[in-house]
Structures are given as structure tokens and as C-alpha cells.
């Protein structure tokens, strides 16, 4: 090695050294680039994972929406004019029963035999009232 350094080919060795230096610098640069690349990958990965998180959240939201879609239809309340006609029809065969309609609520007053009450209630409920107030006097 020493003989080589002292040899007339020293300049060539210097070139080798220089080359090695350049090579070293080149490798350092490569390392830097590699580190930058690693950093970039990490950052991108973090962002992706957070995006994944957001996606998951979005998916959850979508699922919630689809669940909302499958929720029951809104309650249908008949307008008072329709209710008045329906209630008149329903109580026609129940002498002694009076019915009034106010803001979707049907109020029953008067007298009825207990055995006839369920059928009357069925008919009243079928007219889509908001609520039925049963103030009837029930006879056994």
C-alpha cells in the first residue's frame, strides 16, 4: 500500500482517493435522499392512515344514513276534515257514543257496552287520528 502511495502512480491513487471522496459524498447524498424518502413515506403513511380513519368515519356515517333510510316511515295523521267523516262513519252504528275531533285528537264521550268497545276503537284508530281520548262510560 505504501509502495503504491509512493509510486509514480500517486496521482492516480489521489484520483482514486478523490473518487472515493466523491463516492463518499455521493453515498452520503444517497443516504440523505433515502432518509428524505423514508420521512416522506412516513408522513404520507400517517396522512393515509388518518385518511383511512376519516374514510372509516365517513363509512360509519354512510351506514348511519342507510340505517336512517330503513327507519320507519313518518306517522300519518289525517286532517280534521277527513277525521270528522271517518269518525262519523265509525260511530254511526254506536248509538249513545259521541265523538269530537280537534287538532287530530278524537275524544269519545257517552256510553258503550264493554264488548263493543274494541271494534269501535279499531274503527276510530283506522281513521289515522293523532290520539284517541276515551272518555266513554263503559257498561258491563
Amino acid at each position: 500500500m505504501e509502495s503504491l502511495m509512493r509510486s509514480p502512480k500517486l496521482p492516480a491513487a489521489s484520483v482514486v482517493c478523490l473518487t472515493s471522496k466523491k463516492d463518499f459524498i455521493y453515498k452520503v447524498n444517497l443516504m440523505k435522499q433515502f432518509i428524505y424518502l423514508l420521512l416522506a413515506v412516513c408522513i404520507t403513511g400517517t396522512q393515509l392512515s388518518s385518511c383511512k380513519g376519516k374514510d372509516a368515519g365517513t363509512n360509519k356515517d354512510t351506514t348511519t344514513v342507510s340505517q336512517d333510510t330503513s327507519t320507519p316511515a313518518p306517522v300519518v295523521i289525517a286532517p280534521d276534515t277527513t277525521l270528522n267523516n271517518s269518525v262519523r262513519d265509525a260511530t254511526k252504528d254506536y248509538p249513545g257514543v259521541n265523538a269530537s275531533v280537534n287538532n287530530g285528537e278524537v275524544t269519545l264521550t257517552g256510553k258503550i257496552k264493554r264488548e263493543r268497545l274494541p271494534k269501535l276503537m279499531e274503527s276510530i284508530q283506522a281513521s289515522h287520528p293523532k290520539k284517541v281520548n276515551n272518555n266513554l262510560t263503559i257498561e258491563p
Binding site: 306517522v75 264493554r114 268497545l117 274494541p118 276503537m121 279499531e122 284508530q125 283506522a126 289515522h128 287520528p129 293523532k130 290520539k131 284517541v132 281520548n133 276515551n134 263503559i138
Partner: peptide, 24 residues
Amino acid sequence: TKDNLWSIYNKIDPDFRGGDLGLN
């Protein structure tokens, strides 16, 4: 089936006094 449901309704809320159910 419908009669049975009304029977259960009448059992839970005797004489349908509650006014808290719309069974249609």
C-alpha cells in the same frame, strides 16, 4: 291475528284509557 293484537292491547291498557297507542 288482528283480533289477538287488539286483545293484547286491551290487556295492557284496559278499556283503552291511556290514549298513548295508535294501533292500525
